[in-house]
Design a protein around this nucleic acid. Sequence first.
DNA 1: CGCATTTCTTAATCTAGATTAATGCACAGC
DNA 2: GCTGTGCATTAATCTAGATTAAGAAATGCG
Lengths: 179, 179
Amino acid sequence: MNNINILFNLNTDSASKIYKKGTILQRAGDPSSHLYYVKKGLLKSYTIDKKGKEHIFMFAPEGWLMSDIESQEFNKEAVLFFECLEDSDLIKISKEQSTRDDLSKEQYLHMSSLLLRRVGVLQRRIIMLMSASAKERYEHFLETYPELPNRLPQRLIASYLGITPEALSKIRGEMLREK
Amino acid sequence: MNNINILFNLNTDSASKIYKKGTILQRAGDPSSHLYYVKKGLLKSYTIDKKGKEHIFMFAPEGWLMSDIESQEFNKEAVLFFECLEDSDLIKISKEQSTRDDLSKEQYLHMSSLLLRRVGVLQRRIIMLMSASAKERYEHFLETYPELPNRLPQRLIASYLGITPEALSKIRGEMLREK
DNA sequence: CGCATTTCTTAATCTAGATTAATGCACAGC
DNA sequence: GCTGTGCATTAATCTAGATTAAGAAATGCG
C-alpha cells in the first residue's frame, strides 16, 4: 500500500484509473468535489482570466496530489481546471474521504507534513512572483523541477512563470547566447 | 485558554509578552526558530531582494500565526523578516513546541484546518499575482481585509500587492475620481 | 513649539514584458 | 503523402507599472 492509501484509508488500488491525455478532470465553476493522486503521468491545474488567458497554478507529476484547496476550504465552486498532460494513472478521492475526521494519529501527522510542505512551496512561489525577474523565475523553476521541462511544452512553462511564450523564448535565446 | 494554547499544549499565558512597535522578531539569515501567535497588535513578514527592496509576504493581525514555513520545512535559515507594526502582545512558540508529534486528535484536526486555510489563502494570492492587474489586486485586498487598510501606511499595502507606492497612489487617485 | 523625517501625491521618463504579426517546424488526421 | 493546426522563435510596437524627482502633508521628537 502506498502512502496516499494510508493517508486516506483507501483500500489498495480500488480507485486507480487511467485517464487519457487531454482529459479535463475538473472545470472552474463546477462544484469542487475531488482530489487526484498521481500514480503515473502528469496533470496541470489552471485558471482562465476574464480575457480568456490561461494561468497555470501548478503541475502534478508522479507522487503529487492535485487539489483545489481554496474552493474546498471556502466552500465555493471550483476556481481551477484540472487536466491530464499525459495519459495518467490517478486515484480519485472524494471530498468526504479527504475531510473525514476519524483518521489515526499517523495519518494526521502525514497530512500535516504534506500541508506544511505545500505551504512552503507556495510561500517561495509568491516571493519569486513579487521579487524576481522572469529570467530568475525561469532559472529557479529549472533548478527546482529539473525533470519537468522535458515533459512540458514551453508554452506551459511560460504560463506557470506568469509570462508569455514569446517572453520565455527571448529569455531562452539570451541564455543560450550567454553560455 | 485560547485556541492556540490548546493547539500547542501551552499553559495559559506563560509565553505572552508585549513587544514594542518596530521590534524585529526574526531576521532573514538567522536560524528560523520560532512562530508567533498574535494576541493583540499587528506584524508583517517580508523579504528583502538583492536590490534592497522590501516585499511583504503577509500581515498578521489579532488571532493570526506568523511563521516562516518555507525555511522550517526545508531546514534552511530564515528567508523572512518578522517585525511589529504596532505594540503587540505575542505568544512565542519554539520550533520544538510546534513540531512535537504527541498532539491529540483534536489538536491535529485543528492544525490541519489552519494549514488548509493557509493553503487556500496562498492559492488565491498566487492566482491574483499572475492574472489580475494592480488595481484588481488592490480592490481584492480591500474586500478581503477591510480592517487592515486603516492600520497600515499605503507604502506597505503597495508592497503587499507587489507594486510601488507611486503606482498605488495613482490607482487610488483614479478610484476617487471614478466614484 | 519647531525642526527633521517619513509619507503621500503628481508628473516625466524609462523599461520589462505584453501584444501583434510573420515565419518555419513538427506532427496528427485523412 | 498532403494539409491543417498548434508550437516555437524573432522582431516591431505598445503599455502597465517602475524609476526618478520634487513638492505638500503628516508625524515624531528634542
